[in-house]
Design a protein around this nucleic acid. Structure first.
Length: 113
DNA sequence: TGTTTGACCACGG
DNA sequence: GCCGTGGCCAAAC
């Protein structure tokens, strides 16, 4: 029978929704998302993104840590996938870190109200 | 059921 | 700027 399937927490959908709004060529942080949602914590954002497997509509590569490092790169099909994707969008990445982070940082709390 | 672990972050020194 | 510490909250063990 239909055993009770583990439903996706609302928190997941909330995170995905915000990540989908990140404009091309911009990035945001785990903390900014958690802060904007006023739910959970930065760690939960990473936890939600890790569970993203199968949801390709979400540009998870546009989420970096607070100093612009591609801390989640090892969770992509290839360690270079995240960097490749960002560079293709015009984001300059040097040594797995967004060099002009302050300029490309997109804060949902500011832009997405 | 207690401990450890994470795609993290703010803060103090 | 670096480092240690505490907070965060759910999953995995």
């Amino acid at each position: 029978m239909m055993a009770t399937q583990p439903e996706k927490p609302h928190y997941f959908d909330a995170v995905y929704e915000v990540v989908r709004q990140i404009p091309r060529g911009r990035v945001t942080t785990y903390g900014a998302i958690a802060d904007f949602l006023a739910l959970g914590s930065a760690r939960m954002t990473g936890w939600a993104l890790r569970n993203i497997a199968g949801t390709e509509d979400v540009p998870a590569h546009r989420v970096v840590n607070r100093v612009g490092e591609l801390s989640g790169r090892h969770h992509f099909p290839s360690p270079t996938f995240m960097r490749r994707m960002l560079e293709r969008e015009g984001v300059k990445v040097v040594k797995d870190r967004v060099s002009d982070f302050d300029n490309v940082f997109w804060n949902p709390a500011d832009e997405l109200l």
